[in-house]
Every structure is written in C-alpha cells, then in structure tokens.
Amino acid sequence: MNIFRLFGDLSHLAAIAILLLKIWKTRSCAGVSGKTQLLFAVCFITRYIDLFLHFVSLYNTEKVMKLIYISASVFTCYLIFFKFKATYDGNHDSMRAEFLIVPAAGLACLINTKFDAIEILWTFSIYLEAVAILPQLFLISKTGEAETITSHYLFAQGSYRALYILNWIYRYHYESHVDTIAIVAGVVQTILYCDFFYLYITKVVKGQKIVLPA
C-alpha cells in the first residue's frame, strides 16, 4: 500500500459518500446519471465476484472496502430508480449504455491476461469502469450545467483513478509491479475527465457554477 493508492481509495469513498449524501439530503437525483451509477454497480459486482464465490470472514479492510463499494453503489441505484424515481432526469440521461457495455465485454474477451471466467469478468469490469462516467458527462452536456455538489462528486471520482496512475508509477518503480490492462484503462478513464477537471479548477474552485458551453 502506498500513499497514492491510499488517497485514491479515500477519494473514491468520498465520491460515493458525496453522491449518496447529495441524493439523500436533497431527496433528489436531479443532475445525476442513473446509467453511470448502474454501470459502476456492475463494475463492482463483476470485479469483486470472489466475495460471493468463496466468502471468507471480513478479516481485512480490503474485503470490507469491496462490500462497502458494492452495497453503496447498489443503494445509490435504489435511491435513483426507486425511492427518488420522480426526480430522475431520464430524458437527459439518454446515452445508450449498451454502446459501452457491449464493446467492453467484447474487448474483455479479446484482450485479457488469462481466458478464464473470473479474469474476463475482472477485465470487463476494468474496461467498463473506464467509460462508465460517460453517461454522466453526457447528461451534464445535455442539461448545460452541473450542481456544485455534483461537481465535487465528479472531481473526487476522477481524482481516484488519477491517483491510481501515480500508484502504478510508484509500484512500477519500487515494486517492479505492473498491471498493463488496469494502467491503460485507467489512463483512458482519467483523460475523459480532463475537460471537466479544467472547468472544475477554473470555475468551481472560485465558487462559480459549471455552466456549458463554457
């Protein structure tokens, strides 16, 4: 464990918590893409499938973190599609999730480190996570704005994988560890946030709201 990965995981936890708090406190999921949250839930379930296969006691923080990610993302989807369904902005959340899921699944079958079920599910989860934020960014471009709290959520969500890139550099250098598929997908994922990062740094930090076109 290194500082980059620690802060990356904390940033990821913060993003999940910020979004949950936003929806719970405002009792509304306006401006939130339900499809992105569904895709994240699929990512966690397919990546941490080992939790369901051979359940071992919660003997370490990693198992607890995996359970937190899965339960929090499923609960978020429940809030969006059931509890606060009336506030779900389905018209603007119109990016076709199939256009993300099918290529990720196909690519996972073509490019992977081992052709076995668990490994392909893990690879699918990594590829899907790289593009899972697109429906959310698409929704913001359709509505033309993002609530400040949603911007904080996106900043934390984007920072998590950006910090993981630093973690991978650290591990390559000091532990001579490399996970090529995760690194390539993580770089693609972080690049997708660049435009948002620019808007966040130049606007939200100064107390302004993100309004598109910038």
Partner: peptide, 10 residues
C-alpha cells in the same frame, strides 16, 4: 523487468 502479478488492487 516488472512482473505482471495478480490483481491486488480495488
């Protein structure tokens, strides 16, 4: 050379 060991990250 760096080794491609298992996936030990979240």
């Amino acid at each position: 050379p760096p080794t491609q060991s298992g996936h030990d990250e979240l």
